[in-house]
């Protein structure tokens, strides 16, 4: 809340102008329909859908793996967990860079595909993968996958094996046991994982910056640019406040519905 001074400093006055701008309207505009600019609203919407899609894909990938580890023999579980954590210990930026190498037009994936095509004598034009929304999605999934695996594992591991036996004893087959026993009991882990994935995806700008180029602009990029390139921190602050409120609403709604899992800390 404040106004940008001509010299780049900030004049502190109370104004809602920045929020009006975020909604795509001009503060002095009298006809909202005529001067509506969907730019910022669409950025918000893009961030939300990307975060939603990432979370969904991450749950679908993390759950089977977590289930596998939780049901593995005690001795091997720590090794598997270690393997899940190793990518996490490489740096965030390095992980994005790895995907740049893979996705580039002359990168590793196209290299392998080209080699395969050559093997079968098929014509091959390299796929344009880097700097697309898909690249950003893959990058996000890769960055945050371990954050989902760990809490789901923690809640799955806590389930008393005799519950599976009881379910089987009462006539449930493997699929029914999963739906009626395993999944409900592991929900705290899924909830914790969702919080650990959804919120950072909403706020990050590195992945979209490096893998999306100028194609994919998210709230994070918007904020970052206001602070460092556009030098309009008041508008950036307004945007980050909107981001924070959005994530808090999602978190509160989500935890109200499914309960707040202690798994967050354990992960």
């Amino acid at each position: 809340m404040g106004r940008r001074a001509p010299d780049g400093g900030v004049i502190f006055t109370f104004t809602l102008d920045n929020y009006i701008r975020l909604l795509g309207l001009q503060p002095d505009c009298l006809n909202p329909l005529a001067c509506f600019d969907p730019l910022y609203v669409s950025i918000l919407w893009r961030s939300l859908t990307l975060a939603f899609n990432t979370t969904l894909i991450v749950i679908l990938m993390a759950y089977p793996l977590a289930y596998f580890i939780a049901r593995a023999p005690q001795k091997r579980r720590n090794t598997y967990l270690f393997l899940v954590l190793v990518p996490l210990w490489t740096n965030f930026v390095i992980r994005v860079y790895a995907w740049m190498m893979l996705l580039r037009t002359q990168g590793a994936i196209n290299g392998v595909l080209g080699w395969l095509a050559g093997l079968f004598g098929m014509p091959f034009t390299p796929l344009e993968m880097l700097y697309t929304p898909g690249a950003v999605l893959v990058g996000m999934v890769y960055e945050f996958l371990p954050f989902m695996i760990l809490p789901i594992y923690t809640s799955l591991e806590k389930i008393d094996p005799s519950l599976y036996e009881a379910a089987a004893d009462l006539g449930a087959n493997a699929l029914k046991t999963f739906w009626r026993v395993t999944l409900p009991l592991s929900m705290p882990g899924v909830v914790a994982g969702t919080i650990l994935v959804f919120i950072p995806v909403m706020g990050t700008f590195v992945v979209s910056d490096l893998l999306g180029g100028k194609q994919v602009i998210l709230v994070g990029n918007l904020i970052q640019r206001q602070f460092l390139d556009a030098r309009d921190p008041t508008f950036g602050s307004a945007a980050s406040l909107v981001l924070m409120v959005l994530t808090l609403i999602v978190t509160v709604f989500y935890t109200r519905k499914f309960g707040f899992g202690k798994e967050i800390v354990v992960g």
Binding site: I195, L196, I199, P200, M202, G203, T204, F205, G220, I223, Q224, F227, P233, G236, S237, S240, L241, L243, M244, T247, L248, T251, I264
Partner: peptide
């Protein structure tokens, strides 16, 4: 945990 890092950063 519940506030995006970028918000904390700025």
């Amino acid at each position: 945990i519940v506030i995006p890092e970028i918000v904390m950063g700025i």
